[in-house]
Computed example of a mutant assay.
Amino acid sequence: MERLEQTNQPTILQNKAIIWGLILTITLIWGYAWVLMKQSLNYMGPFTFSSFRFGTGALTLLIVVWIIRLGLPPKRYIKHLILIGLLQTTIVFTLVMFALMFVDAGKSSVLLYSMPLWSSLLAVKFLGEHLTRWKIAGLLSGMIGLLTILGWDIWLGQSLEVIVGEILIIISAVSWAVANIYYRLNVSHLPKIQSSAFQMLFGVLGIFIATLIMESGQPIDVNSVSLYYILFTGVLASALCFTVWYIIMNTVDMVTATISTLLVPMFGLILSSLLLNEQLTIGVTTGSALILLGIVLSQITFKSS
C-alpha cells in the first residue's frame, strides 16, 4: 500500500489545491452524513441502520484491502482489532444512533467530535505526552463548551431523554478517544486501511448482536430513499472517504489533519439547520464555538510551549 501511495503522490497529492479540495469534499460528506443518519430513523431502528451501514462499509473496505493485496493482519493483532472494533464502531455508533432519536443531528456531531479533547487528556496518561499550557487551555475551553450545551438544555427545561442522549454521545466520544490511544499503543504498525477494515468488520458484528437483541422483528422500510442513506453513509462516507483520508494523512501533518476534522461538526450544524430545520440556539452556538476553539488550542503546538 505504501508503494502505491508513494507512486500516486507526485502526480496527484503534491498539489495543495487538490489536497484541500479533497479535505473539504470529505468533511462535507461526513457532515452531510449526520443529516442522513437522523433521517434514517424514519425508516428503521437505529441499530438496524448501523448494521446495514457498517456492514456495507466493512465489505467495501475489505474489497479495497483485497485489491491492494494487503491480506489478513498477523494473528497477534486480531485481539487488538476486536477491542478497537468494539470501542470505535460498536459502542460509538450504537450509542450515537440511539441518541439521535432524541438529540438534534447538528448538536450530536459537535458532541461526538469533542473526541480530540479526550484523546489529548488520555495521551498524557498513556502515551507520556506533555500537557502544555495550550493543551490545558484547550481542554478547559472544550469542557466549558460541553457544559454550556448540556447546561443550556437543562436551564431551558429540556426533556430528560435529550439530556441522557447528549451524555451518551459524550460517552461515545470518550470511547472513540480510548480506541485511538489503544490503536497507537498496539496496532499503529499495521497499514491504516487494513486496520480500519478489520476493526470495522469486528465492530459491526457487535452491532449485529445489539440489533438482534434490541430490534429483532421490528419493521424495516427498505425503499430507494433508505437504500440511498445506507449506501451513502456505508460506501461513500464510511469506506471510500476513509480510504482517501488515510492516503491524505500521509501527505499532511497530524495537526493539519486533526484541525481539518473540525469542519465536520461545522458542516453538520449548518446542513442540519438548512435541511432538517434544526434551531441553532445560543447555547449550542456558544458551546460549539468553545469546543472547536478548545480542539484547536489542544492540537496546535506553539514554539513557546
Rank of each mutant, 00 (worst) to 15 (best):
M1G: 14
E2Y: 13
R3K: 15
Q9F: 14
Q14A: 14
I23M: 01
T27N: 14
A33T: 13
Y43F: 12
F52T: 00
L61P: 03
V65A: 04
V65S: 05
G71V: 03
T89N: 04
I91T: 08
V92E: 01
V92A: 10
V110C: 07
Y113E: 10
S119P: 04
R133M: 13
K135C: 09
S141V: 09
G142Q: 08
G145E: 14
L147S: 04
W152T: 11
W155H: 14
S159H: 15
I169Y: 02
I171R: 02
W176K: 09
Y183I: 06
Y183E: 11
V187Y: 10
P191W: 05
I193K: 02
S196T: 15
A197Q: 01
G203F: 12
L205M: 15
I209P: 02
A210C: 12
I213K: 05
M214F: 15
S226Q: 10
Y229R: 12
Y229P: 03
L231R: 10
A237N: 03
V252R: 07
T258S: 13
M266C: 15
I270Q: 03
N277D: 14
G287Q: 07
G287S: 04
L297F: 06
T301R: 15
K303F: 07
K303N: 12
K303T: 06
S304P: 01
